[in-house]
Design a protein around this nucleic acid. Structure first.
Length: 276
DNA sequence: ATCCTATCCTGGCTGC
DNA sequence: TGCAGCCAGGATAGGA
């Protein structure tokens, strides 16, 4: 599932191929991908604009659009589970799951591909209209251990669902939450308001280290879905300590990794290292 | 305020 | 080998 490290990897790869390019044509094969806009309205909005800057926020990627030097909204994408993005030269075969194709002025095209049809590519007058009230970027300086601790204490929720809440912290998903909680030795069902300052600081550090290491390895590819836009798999899945390791020995203590369900989500942990 | 469930989707896996 | 049935999973909406 593309989470922050995967989206960051994708954004870095497509940025040089998109920035400065003008959108010349638009082909939509599945209208719902547009998140409510009709095909003609979407095409009218984006065709003729130039992508000025490509950036990431949480699990979203954004391309700011301009027309004759003036800001003209943004293209905002969310890959959900199986979305992919490619920017490829003419003649490239996007396969059977292509949802949106944008032809660019250098002969290449932007391909938005998705198997399960949950991914979205919005046009919005302001990117913020789509992004909504996202929490802090976990790798930015605005995400501090103290602020994190204060936020945890202000809520009374189980740690796992709180960390998955994009309004609390932006960009974490099922995999990186499990990995971060393991590294910090915190049980997924621990109450957020009972986390000490020291443990909050340890988790804060674990989240940042896990994400940074995953980005350095270009994300995780544990199934056929996630590939970088160059077609390469990431390699962070080789570093998973709990995710997908049910029954295998804990790297720290050797006890078998357990899989439980928390908030309808498969959750992996070492019950010996992560006590309640 | 928080939790729980259903919904959206389809490839891949399990079990017969 | 074939096939039915189940499952994963991000985000959101609605109900408890």
């Amino acid at each position: 599932m593309p989470e922050l490290p995967e989206v960051e990897t994708i954004t870095r790869l497509i940025r040089p191929r998109l920035e400065g390019r003008r959108i010349q044509g638009c082909e939509v094969r599945w209208t719902r991908t547009l998140g409510g806009l009709s095909r003609p309205a979407f095409a009218r909005a984006v065709v003729g604009t130039r992508m000025s800057r490509v950036w990431r926020r949480g699990k979203f990627f954004v391309a700011d659009l301009e027309h004759e030097g003036h800001a003209k909204g943004a293209l905002v994408g969310h890959l959900r589970m199986t979305g992919r993005v490619n920017v490829e030269p003419d003649g490239w075969d996007p396969g059977p799951y292509l949802k949106v194709k944008l032809a660019l002025d250098d002969g290449s095209s932007f391909y938005f591909i998705d198997v399960r049809k949950f991914a979205r590519l919005w046009y919005a007058r302001e990117a913020a209209d789509v992004l909504g009230p996202l929490g802090p970027e976990p790798l930015s300086s605005e995400f501090t251990a103290d602020g994190f601790h204060t936020g945890l204490r202000a809520r009374r929720r189980a740690m796992k669902p709180l960390l998955l809440d994009q309004d609390f912290v932006a960009g974490l998903g099922n995999i990186y939450v499990d990995e971060s909680l393991f590294r910090a030795g915190i049980h997924p069902l621990a109450r957020s308001d009972r986390i000490s300052r020291e443990r909050a600081a340890k988790l804060h550090r674990a989240i940042r280290e896990t994400l940074a290491e995953a980005i350095a390895r270009e994300g995780s590819s544990f199934d056929v879905f996630y590939r970088t836009p160059e077609g390469n798999p990431g390699s962070f899945q080789d570093e998973f300590r709990v995710y997908g390791r049910k029954g295998k020995p804990c790297v720290a203590c050797g006890a078998p990794i357990r899989r439980i369900v928390v908030g309808q989500r498969g959750t992996h942990l070492c019950t010996s290292c992560q006590r309640r």
